[in-house]
Nucleic acid binder design. Sequence first.
DNA 1: GAGGTTGTTTAGAA
DNA 2: CTTCTAAACAACCT
Length: 265
Amino acid sequence: MPELGDAEGFRRSALRLAGALIARLEVPDPSVVRNVDVATLQRAIRGSVIGSACRHGKCLLIPVGTSWMLLRFGMTGSLILDETGNVSRRFERLSIGTDRGWLRLVDRRRLGNVSLARTEPECAELIGALGPDALRIGNPEFIAQLRSSRGSIKSAMMDQQRIAGIGNFGSDEILWRARIRPDAPAASLSPAQWTSLHRATRSVMHLTARAGHTPRGRTWLTSVREDSRALCPRCSTCLCRSEVNGRTSVWCPECQPPSSLATRA
DNA sequence: GAGGTTGTTTAGAA
DNA sequence: CTTCTAAACAACCT
């Protein structure tokens, strides 16, 4: 599930419990707790009040008392608000119980994890070298972060140290809208292509963030990418698949012409 | 049964 | 130094 839009949806779930008092922490799978042991985490957060969650890229930061919990979701993680106790507990890894309900980290493949930061520097360290958030980045910085890459534009876009929040589906969606091939060298983009790439990024990030997940509507590449014989939702040409950076890319040979043939952008 | 998967980290090669 | 590759993590789906 999780790219930026999904993480934004999880943030809104966490926001519903802002101000709630943490009564208990249940950790059915202790291996998801990354940098401290479960007892330490329990000691740090029990009796604390949940603050307003922030998101940076695909990463969720929940203030708890004077500390922060940092959640990463991997490929299959999600954060579920459970106010009624009726939510499925399958693949539940960690649950925060409050006076107003539960926040449950559910993660089938267990590639997600949770860390605890007790100080601001510790927090900064955990977020690490993440680049600016893809939803908020402005045009000059967007270009500056990507243009210096010597590899393909898609690799650069998915590099969380350059820009945080864009994943495999998101980058394909953006490149398709901007009419740029995923394997185009970042250094080869024209000024017009940079403009349309940033515009497409903003639009895709805004729409996914608003939805809280990647939309699957008729005008989205995401809606058809899993079908190996899918046609381009825009021009009905048979979509191409290739590997960029070890991940499957889906693109339209008609809408996304080779850079030498790019007329405008 | 085989192959694929919205992420990240690591080691090693180019 | 930068970039790319493969593997590992794990468990499901087609």
